[in-house]
């Protein structure tokens, strides 16, 4: 695995300051240890989900009808939008516009903070409907997977608060913003995991 940049393929790419170097590791190696651990953890949980699904098809067929599609959809839109805003922040920093990057990050934080709020309302609604972690295998896998994801989102929001402060303090610029890219990679990975969870519990017939 080489982090060395290779020459750009075209003159257009070489003049585009917003393009990252080819063949690199985004951010730093340490964050990728964490991201790959997160993806491995969720891979195992997805295997457990599908194992349970093939053994209890009726429960998994009926389960999504009892969950709030509105809450799941709202959190999906929140995750993709917050991820988008973070990508815009990285782009602004790469173009040497730290004030713009700070505004994009603040917007990403405000949108991303909606995730635990929606999750809180969703769980309260679930409990009112009698959907608990001690329910059937569908409910157990739903709570186990989504709560794990909520924990990762919580870490991500803390990380986002950190890079907001660092950006505000002027710690990053166009040439040195690996910390920001490392956080962005983690946040996008957490978004990616949610995009895999969403159809399993809210959409699948």
């Amino acid at each position: 695995m080489s982090a060395a940049a290779t020459p750009p393929a075209s003159s257009e790419e070489s003049t585009d300051a917003s393009s990252p170097a080819t063949g690199r590791i985004p951010g730093n190696r340490a964050i990728w240890v964490g991201i790959l651990a997160e993806l491995t953890e969720f891979t195992l949980m997805f295997l457990v989900y599908f194992f349970a699904r093939v053994n209890h098809p009726q429960m998994f067929h009926e389960g999504p009808r009892r969950l709030s599609l509105l809450a799941g959809s709202a959190n999906t839109l929140i995750m993709v939008s917050s991820s988008y805003l973070v990508a815009r922040a990285v782009l602004a920093m790469r173009q040497d516009r730290p004030e713009g990057a700070l505004r994009w990050l603040l917007a990403a934080f405000v949108v991303g903070a909606g995730y635990p709020v929606v999750k809180f309302l969703e769980v309260r609604w679930n409990l009112e409907q009698g959907l608990t972690g001690g329910g059937d295998v569908f409910q157990m896998s739903y709570y186990y997977l989504t709560f794990n994801h909520l924990v990762h989102t919580g870490w991500g929001l803390l990380g986002m608060a950190w890079v907001v402060v660092r950006t505000w303090m002027g710690a990053y610029d166009a040439k040195n913003h690996n910390g920001l890219v490392a956080f962005a990679s983690y946040w996008h990975a957490t978004d990616l995991v949610w995009l895999m969870i969403f159809p399993l519990f809210y959409v699948m017939p």
Binding site: M1, T22, R24, I25, P26, V80, S83, A87, A184
Partner: peptide, 18 residues
């Protein structure tokens, strides 16, 4: 998933292993 991986994470042109 592919959109997030290639565009937001910028892995389309990153380390082949990752």
């Amino acid at each position: 998933g592919r959109l997030v991986i290639d565009v937001f994470m910028e892995l389309g042109e990153a380390s082949p292993v990752l």
